[in-house]
């Protein structure tokens, strides 16, 4: 493939990608703003329920990983369990419900769906293991 062909192909791919990305960003920003209003009310104090809630909240959130640390740090400060906060931080970076349409379009629906399902499950498993290991070594 020469430079001209590469440029045309890249332009075509970008043209397909941009409309989905803009739509996804619109939805993600809306959901983020909505979720932020209820972050404080989300957690119940129940260890297991909060882990699941944290994982779902993280899956629906979108943004830089650093933001998840800041929000997670705030949660910890407000008494939310480390397990729930870890699930939140993990799914924030590994699960992208809002990015699913774009991921499916670019990498295939089956891949995108299964990847997100397993990343959600793994996020909870990693959270449990992290807390267990920390309890053992501390």
């Amino acid at each position: 493939m020469n430079l001209k062909q590469s440029t045309i192909k890249a332009g075509g791919n970008l043209r397909k990608m941009i409309p989905i990305l803009v739509g996804v960003l619109l939805l993600a920003t809306l959901l983020n703003n909505l979720a932020q209003r209820y972050y404080d009310k989300l957690f119940t104090g129940n260890y297991l329920k909060d882990t699941f809630i944290g994982a779902i909240a993280g899956s629906l959130s979108f943004g830089m990983a650093l933001t998840s640390y800041v929000v997670g740090g705030e949660f910890l400060h407000n008494g939310v369990s480390l397990l729930a906060v870890t699930a939140f931080v993990m799914t924030w970076t590994t699960v992208g419900i809002m990015m699913l349409p774009l991921e499916a379009k670019m990498l295939g629906t089956k891949f995108a769906v299964w990847r997100n399902i397993f990343n959600f499950i793994f996020a909870i498993v990693i959270s449990i293991l992290t807390v267990l290991i920390l309890n053992m070594i501390q």
Binding site: Y69, G73, L76, L129, I133, L134, I137
Partner: peptide
């Protein structure tokens, strides 16, 4: 982002995760 994670959650947590 590792330094930021250490700042918020501690180095042991960061290592384990």
């Amino acid at each position: 982002l590792i330094p930021a994670m250490i700042y918020y959650f501690g180095w042991q947590y960061t290592m384990v995760i």
